[in-house]
Design a protein around this nucleic acid. Sequence first.
DNA 1: GTATCCATTATTGTATACAATAAAAAAGGA
DNA 2: TCCTTTTTTATTGTATACAATAATGGATAC
Lengths: 221, 221
Amino acid sequence: MATDEHIHQQILNAIVEHQLPPGARLPEDRLSEAFGVSRTGIRKVLQRLSLEHFVVIEKNKGAHVNRPSESEALEVLDSRILIEPQLIPALITHWNPEQSSRFRLMTKEEKQAEANGQLAEAIQLTARFHYELAHLSGNKVLASFVEQLCYRSSLILAAYGTRGSVGCECGDHAQLLDILDSGSAEDAQHWMSHHLKHIRSSLILESKEDTNIDFQRLFSR
Amino acid sequence: MATDEHIHQQILNAIVEHQLPPGARLPEDRLSEAFGVSRTGIRKVLQRLSLEHFVVIEKNKGAHVNRPSESEALEVLDSRILIEPQLIPALITHWNPEQSSRFRLMTKEEKQAEANGQLAEAIQLTARFHYELAHLSGNKVLASFVEQLCYRSSLILAAYGTRGSVGCECGDHAQLLDILDSGSAEDAQHWMSHHLKHIRSSLILESKEDTNIDFQRLFSR
DNA sequence: GTATCCATTATTGTATACAATAAAAAAGGA
DNA sequence: TCCTTTTTTATTGTATACAATAATGGATAC
């Protein structure tokens, strides 16, 4: 059975897992036959994905996977830097051993996926770690916005990411859990801020501009 | 000519201006004949409005204007309290006499609309004051989120607002402009925080629960 | 051989037709 | 008279048909 929600999740996964790279075309009839529904259902999903900034729909040209601009990439990270640390005080009031072990399991799976080279899994888990923390704050409005930002970040890393975007000298996500267990909201805020700023600064923003490629310079010798 | 964007804006205006009250039905064929387009175009707009939380679509039951829950109302305001003051430092770097006079004009129109009893105008201008400030921060991602929150706030005030929600003992929006002119980011942040908290606390959240009305208690004597 | 123009093709935009569902009204029985 | 059941009506969900647009490839003229 192919419900709207299901189709949406499938395509979104493919995008954030870099199966569908930035710029990839998403023809309606191809997708409709792939999912076994009519174009109507596909259009609805594509419409939604475009409002969520995962695809771009150009009139009479169809849907492409969004290729985030430099400014968009930075703004998404800046938004996270502004919001996620601020959620710590609220989430720490809901913090308990049960949550702690739940998140520790996630970081374990995360490391494993990374070690086994399961890129798609690793990306999903990294994003999930962040937005599930956000949901713990109790504010669903902010949490779902953060969730969207996390998914967008995955897409951004597909366009501008380096190997450094994954690792971080501040340690992995497990370290944040230690801090949360210790109960220091302030430390956790600092860690989160630092972590996100590290990701932001790891983006390489000059090279991958493929609009206006200077073919002259590229192929002349 | 009735483009998608135009229809969206029209319906959104009607909602935030309280012309279409929370709970109002939005039948597709009625709207389609009103705007002179087929149901297809209307459905697209309704879909979008539902993703933006202005309408709720129930399967096989159609679209209604969203009746925000208490928790949703509080979460929207909390989100604004968390974000909007944080945008002040960025926006103050773009502050200049030109912007100042532009916003002063807005507050003037705002007061006038309020004085003349033009409720719809006043609501729009109040929201606009906030989200245009947010856009001055330079972060389009956050600004458009704040914009949505401001519109949602207008809908929330339709459901839970009091007369106190409009006025505020901290003075009107013009006072913030004075602070911005003085250049004190910290003061501006405090003002914004206070202002939003005042709106939040002015909501009356007990009464208008019309789900689960206790008719027993209501009509027994 | 190259450039321009035209025709073909592929794809999306929009409207409509039909099916499915839920609400409302009517009929029947107690 | 009131409750239950059935029928009707209104409305939405989905697929498809047709129109409009843009991209591609080929033909013709120079």
